[in-house]
Amino acid sequence: MDVLIEFISNHLQMIYIVILMIFVGVEVIGHVPAVLHTPLMSGANAIHGVVIIGAILVMLSASPDDILALSLGFVAVLLGTLNVVGGFVVTDRMLEMFKKKK
């Protein structure tokens, strides 16, 4: 119990953000027409590419002689970039076709 109380009081700001973001996510998606499901999924997919920032932080804080961390970090940044760039570009292309059909 003490551990739980300590955890909550130490991370109150983050807990607020988590709870509020859960509601924002739910609200933002409500009542979306079915044709937009796939582009929306694709757009959300690009946004979670934000994990690349973690990969960049790993690289920035790695010591220069830690070859394992640097090479794994390199791969992580590369894959994260694929997620971000590919995600946004493919979403744009989906929506481009969507517009043409109208």
Partner: peptide, 9 residues
């Protein structure tokens, strides 16, 4: 970003 996608997804 993560929680937003987690919940919206």
């Amino acid at each position: 970003g993560g929680i937003l996608v987690g919940s919206a997804g």
